[in-house]
Amino acid sequence: MQNRFTNFAELASFVADARDDADLTQTYEGAFIEANEMARLNLVDAPEALDMPDPDQVRAAVDMMMQTMFDVLRDTRMDAYAADLAWGFANSFHVVAKRIECREDDAAKKLGELARAYDPSEIYATELEDTQLLCQTLQGCREAMECMRDHACEVYRVETGWPFSPVRGSRVSSALSASMIDARDYLASRARERREQFAPEGPVVAFSGGQQWEDANLLWDGLDSIKARIPEMILATTAQAKGCDAVAQAWAASRGVKVIQFRLDRSQGNRAAFVRNDRILGLKPVEAVICEGSGIQMNLAQKLRQAGVPLHVVKLSHQRVNGAQKRA
């Protein structure tokens, strides 16, 4: 895959500069905070005064872990496997974050049950406070782990030109008594956070294309043009692993655009692709880009036209000679 860097030294310099900006520092500082002086990792042991790791040290460790693998294997016969190993590192952060999230969800469920079954006893108040502290601790650990994962994923993207994608799932971190209000407020704020993560709000731009495509710059330029007009856009793709969809997802990762991936629902049999098209249309996209591919793209383009969605059709003949993969 071609890129705009003439040698690996230039790429390494670009990667280092990209990761030394204030945004990354602020992201780590915002994720590695201590919401409470005490931490509770389970309901059996007593809470402890455990500090969060130093965000600068964690940031350096993740950077070293990811970058060293690329640097050591670069320009050797093992170079081709560096991306696979780096994906595994990033995926490890993702898997651990999901495990913490599952524990957090269980604790939040119990907290909700307690909040709905008020009891004025001291035992109840203690259990409520312990469960709330457990939720807060797990939430902080999840957010920190997701920060590390996102950093690792960004190193992977810059080095390979492709966004990290997990194998499956999203990647996507008393008035009755005083503690009672705290519990309800906590649950409400947590619910809002998770809704935004898994149901982002914003104008949807639909995208689909065939699996054979060469001129990535053409698609990047077109998507950049749309984002200039719709800064808060969300990209909805047909989630194919290669070709146009993969190019669009790489663009979205580079530009910080959220992506909704509509994978095929195999339970729908031969209708799966057409059902997927209907689901994309159900998002009421404000604009769409369809690249020449198969009858599936033709069907989606026809439905978009019938719905009155502004549509850009990009044909194979529109590609420029020697279209190079764009990375930024």
Results as ranks from 00 to 15, higher is better:
residue 296 I to E: 13
residue 266 R to W: 06
residue 174 S to Q: 03
residue 139 Q to M: 09
residue 49 A to T: 06
residue 215 D to P: 06
residue 116 R to F: 00
residue 40 R to E: 11
residue 219 L to W: 03
residue 164 F to N: 03
residue 257 V to T: 05
residue 196 E to F: 05
residue 98 K to L: 12
residue 147 C to Y: 00
residue 186 Y to F: 15
residue 244 C to H: 00
residue 87 W to S: 09
residue 58 V to T: 12
residue 287 E to T: 02
residue 106 D to S: 13
residue 64 M to A: 15
residue 224 D to E: 12
residue 94 H to K: 10
residue 303 K to C: 04
residue 30 G to K: 11
residue 1 M to A: 09
residue 94 H to W: 15
residue 156 Y to L: 15
residue 292 E to I: 04
residue 326 K to L: 13
residue 164 F to D: 01
residue 221 D to Q: 15
residue 278 D to R: 13
residue 32 F to N: 01
residue 207 F to T: 01
residue 122 E to A: 15
residue 296 I to R: 05
residue 276 R to C: 06
residue 37 E to V: 08
residue 4 R to G: 11
residue 30 G to A: 15
residue 96 V to Q: 13
residue 185 D to S: 09
residue 36 N to D: 15
residue 250 A to R: 09
residue 56 D to Q: 14
residue 107 A to S: 14
residue 244 C to S: 12
residue 47 P to D: 08
residue 163 P to G: 14
residue 72 V to E: 11
residue 284 K to A: 12
residue 69 M to D: 05
residue 200 P to V: 05
residue 280 I to T: 04
residue 168 R to D: 11
residue 240 Q to Y: 04
residue 27 T to W: 09
residue 51 D to P: 03
residue 203 P to M: 01
residue 261 Q to K: 13
residue 199 A to V: 10
residue 177 S to M: 03
residue 81 Y to D: 12
residue 116 R to I: 00
